[in-house]
Amino acid sequence: MATKPFTYDISRGFLPGHRACAGCGQAAAVRMVMEIAAPNCVVTNATGCLEVFSTPYPESAWGVPWLHSLFENSASIASGVEAALRKQGRLENTRVLAFGGDGGTVDIGFGALSGMLERGHDILYVCYDNEAYMNTGVQRSGATPYAASTTTSPAGRASFGEDHPKKNLPAICAAHGIPYVATASMAFFADLKRKVRKALGIRGPKYIHVHVPCPPGWGYPEKDTVEIGKLAVETGLFPLVEWEDGEVTRVRKIKRLPVEEYLKPQRRFRHLFRTEEGKAKLAEIQAIADSNIEKYGLAG
């Protein structure tokens, strides 16, 4: 097929040539967010996979003004950017977005995020949650799910992996009483884009927590990123919820698939399928999903 050459305009915000792993859920999610947000925006970015794979000097995959400083201060530098744009009269036409991974958001950047939300800055914070410190080699974070094996919460003869449930950061953000909080998944791209569009239409602090499967970190074939993402939602382990002014206003109903369908294809959970004790853990994980289904009314 002889077709005209491909061209890429920086107005799309996020461009090819970045160095994300093949099948990266985060890169896909960033594209979806930028499709809505670009070009009239400024992005701040915490240290992590996204920052490293998108800006190895002298290359940048960004088509919008983009600022990286440190691991834990994406929300703080965004606060300063927002204040400066307001003072300069540029905030009317420019959206400020702050990006971070789960480590940079749920753990080390948690205080900075809370401060940003509490102060009422007109910023959309997007957390790309791949459930561990992937950039440094799959170490456990506060967003790592129960019983997942990571390099610092490894499964072994005396351990079933991570021994605490995933921190519910979206609910904590909602507890700040901010106008809009949502969870989303890159596997439900229309839903994610709708939420980004909705958030950018609201003035004030907004938070979107996006589930982004990671082929090397979770241990599944890279082609299956969308499928794995869908299963996390359809089992009830990653509920898609929206909060407005602190109250749940909308959820996505699910098929209520058994959690094994989501867990079994992933290397990080395979130890659960090898022993009787592991099966008991599977029951505990099913209980977490059931609790989510009950709490948010996910059953269709």
Partner: peptide
């Protein structure tokens, strides 16, 4: 030196040969 990077300059990095 190296304080700012041009937008979209990643396009020079052709990732096609990865797969």
């Amino acid at each position: 030196f190296a304080v700012v990077t041009r937008p979209g300059s990643s396009l020079r990095n052709k990732t096609g040969p990865w797969g």
